[in-house]
Design a protein around this nucleic acid. Sequence first.
DNA 1: CGGTTGTTTGAGGACGTTCAAGTACTGTGG
DNA 2: CCACAGTACTTGAACGTCCTCAAACAACCG
Lengths: 229, 229
Amino acid sequence: MDSDDRKLLEATELFAALGEEAINRLTLNAVAQTVPKGTVLFLQGDRPEFVHLVLSGRVSLGAEDAHGHSTIVEIFREGQLFILAAAILRKPYLMTARALVDSRVMMIPTDRFNAMLDAEPRFSRALVDVLAEHWRLLVRQIKDLKLRSAGERLGAYLLMKIDARSGTAVLRLDEELNVIAARLGMTPESLSRAFGNLRAHGVRSQGRQVTIEDVAKLRAQVSFDDLDG
Amino acid sequence: MDSDDRKLLEATELFAALGEEAINRLTLNAVAQTVPKGTVLFLQGDRPEFVHLVLSGRVSLGAEDAHGHSTIVEIFREGQLFILAAAILRKPYLMTARALVDSRVMMIPTDRFNAMLDAEPRFSRALVDVLAEHWRLLVRQIKDLKLRSAGERLGAYLLMKIDARSGTAVLRLDEELNVIAARLGMTPESLSRAFGNLRAHGVRSQGRQVTIEDVAKLRAQVSFDDLDG
DNA sequence: CGGTTGTTTGAGGACGTTCAAGTACTGTGG
DNA sequence: CCACAGTACTTGAACGTCCTCAAACAACCG
């Protein structure tokens, strides 16, 4: 592992919780790999051999049905371990991982990862928090899909991306619109129309550049509840 | 805690992993409570004071939007700890818990639970597995919602409830149909129609009593993939 | 600069919801 | 055990949302 990767690694919250020596053991026979946009890291149904960690770039986890329709469940960015569950439980991946942009990914052999999990109390304790945080993300998404319309989901997504709770906000979406559409559970066409509808509520967009004129108003519009305090 | 509760508790996989002495400490000031069908155990947005465990009966976790539409994300049964994430992270509940039938629920104070988590390596290790298993359930549900039609979701739900992979299967659904509808993300009316449509694929139903004439055929119909081997 | 990929717009249609009515359960008290 | 009330479930008709298909347009990359 080179020193740049090492530095990126040490910046992750999980590894901060682990300490120098444990990190060394965990990554002893890990490898890092640079992959171009579009690369498939593993396929739904594969047996996990590695736990993956994004060193740079972004990776999507998604699925396809028999008819070629595909969706994205999550997007991981720098510093995040992904699809831990399959590796921990030694069960096949439920999703396919794809690099959304040119990315650098570290691969830690599952056996070593699981051995650490059994041997290092601090590691399993830290993972409990990571998994719990994750669980909440998925619950949020399910509530979104079941209770909100496409337009409301877009509104909530935009609000999630900004810090402000009122006033005017400007943001540049860092995913392509078709990726965002897949993540939000709609077609690119519907996403485009959803942006059109939000215009009536003070949201202007030109491509990925978005301006929210009145954040507070939009929050009320999509009944945005941030149960995160 | 009475001895019946104790027996139920010891039957759970998590507590089996913990051992006698640790269980005693964890449940020292836990209380068990018998609640009638419909009881709300906590509300979305509440601060968690207890970790809950179902001793008997069933509990749903769901949410409502501003317009009174409600949905169910998960259903927990005997032996299951539920909504750990909020307690672990000390964040507000994302969902409301409701007893689906007369139930008995154990409540473990969060402080004690979290103290155990920090002190007992075996406990956090066991919870990692519980949370990982859980994560996969939610991912499955998201894939369902995004990639499958209402009819396919019902078919997949029925197939999940049976062991057989081919031949004929008979099952009695133990939830009310309106509960199943909420869990599957559709209205009771749509569920009823979905059953109607499945009749063409060899599924007969009268109320909660269901007969699947050809399991293998239905599996093909809903492209059921059990990535659990 | 041309080709490829990404985004928008329009028309038509499918799926699921809503609202409303009717039927079948389930449990309770007489 | 039956009658009745309340709840659960089904069915029908009309509507709305989102998807599909198709085409035009814009942005990006070699």
